[in-house]
Amino acid sequence: MKKNDLFLLLGVLLAAFLLFLGLRLFSGNGEAVEITVTGDVLGVYPLSEDRIIPVADCAEVRIEGGRVHMAFSDCPNQICVRHAPIARVGQTIVCLPNGIAVRILGDGGFDAVVG
């Protein structure tokens, strides 16, 4: 056991905390949600209207009251389904087994995709 071990541990924890703060600080409430399946954009939908979006026969994303959650997925671990609803820019729910990523976009989210 060396002193450096402790520094390393504290350093990593600090870095994680700062990263968390940084991600949090720069993210306001989102405008739209982008759904991708293994990198291909399936669609971008506004958060302002409630919607049920089936994803590739294996999952279902729901927009409810400006927040997005994975309502259903046929994946074995169900981590994505248990993930809390997201609404802030940059927040993402992923389903690794199905390769689905659900990500909140901010202003210009539509432009970024359409333009």
């Binding site: 991600l23 293994t38 990198g39 927040q91 993402t92 390769g99």
Partner: peptide, 10 residues
């Protein structure tokens, strides 16, 4: 693999 940087939030 998923082609999105958003996962960094994890």
């Amino acid at each position: 693999i998923l082609g999105t940087a958003g996962i960094v939030s994890y």
